[in-house]
Design a binder for these strands. Structure first.
Length: 257
DNA sequence: CGGATTTGACCTTG
DNA sequence: CAAGGTCAAATCCG
């Protein structure tokens, strides 16, 4: 019963979020003052938090767990194990990192001396298209509001990509570069001369927003733009920009609290 | 009911 | 042996 109400609430909140995203895009397109844009961003973040909380509270909660404690133990060596029910899912903080590609989570591991686990994703079309793309997501220890997302490998051309998400920013099928939204300084941590493999790039998001990183970087490069105001790209410099474009960066993501 | 997610077990590496 | 990465059964959810 409660689940029905919660699901309806989630749906309504998702619609509210869509509207807030459109509002933000509109405010930016019309050059509205930063305070209002910030307010719209806060609304989106609040809705995201509410959604997360609502999803956590949803479902039948303890209903399924009633028999778990007394359930027969699985035979030794078996993979069978009791489950925590909906509560177990609710406890997981799930950044969406919606980059338009379909990912499937295949593992989660708590890392030595880190409070937050590392999440493992692979392309949902791994079998269909023999796609070897993978990514790992972990919360930053220094600042839990930051997530480090590490990509390995590349998607095959056959892997479908949901461009609708990208289009949502301006509704026109192309994500317009919005320097006011950029905070690349803390976002991009790919350093020139680092020892990491060429097919791998790391960056960190600190905003409740989608980041079409490659598009934005290419736009920046083609326009010869060097963001020095709110963008924070100045710390990277043009050489770093070139360096980053050489990486196989093809992702944008959002972080939900 | 079938696809997606969770999570303990198992495998690999250093 | 410890730590990280992956597998796959159990479970969730639309």
């Amino acid at each position: 019963m409660a689940a029905v109400g919660t699901s309806a609430a989630c749906k309504a909140m998702a619609e509210a979020r869509e509207a807030a995203v459109r509002l933000l895009a509109l405010l930016q397109a019309t050059g509205a003052d930063p305070g209002r844009q910030e307010l719209a961003r806060q609304i989106i973040c609040c809705i995201d938090r509410a959604l997360t909380a609502a999803r956590g509270a949803g479902g039948d909660g303890e209903g399924r767990s009633s028999e778990q404690g007394l359930a027969a133990r699985p035979p030794a060596g078996s993979r069978r194990r009791p489950r925590g029910g909906a509560e177990a899912r609710a406890s997981i903080v799930r950044p969406t990192m919606d980059d338009g590609f379909a990912w499937r989570k295949y593992g989660e591991k708590s890392i030595h001396q880190q409070s937050s686990p590392r999440l493992y994703f692979r392309c949902a079309y791994k079998d269909d298209h023999r796609c070897g793309a993978r990514k790992q997501v972990e919360r930053q220890e220094e600042d839990p509001s930051l997530f480090r997302i590490t990509y390995f490998g590349d998607h095959t051309p056959a892997c479908p990509r949901d461009t609708a998400r990208v289009a949502e920013a301006d509704g026109g099928g192309h994500f317009v570069l919005q320097p006011s939204l950029c905070s690349f300084g803390p976002c991009l941590q790919a350093e020139a001369g680092s020892e990491r493999p060429a097919e791998m790039v790391e960056f960190v998001a600190d905003d409740c927003w989608d980041w079409p990183v490659k598009d934005q970087l290419e736009d920046l490069a083609s326009l010869g733009v060097s963001l020095s105001s709110s963008g924070g790209l100045d710390s990277l410099g043009t050489n770093h920009l070139e360096e980053l474009l050489n990486y196989n960066v093809d992702a944008f993501f959002r972080v939900e609290e």
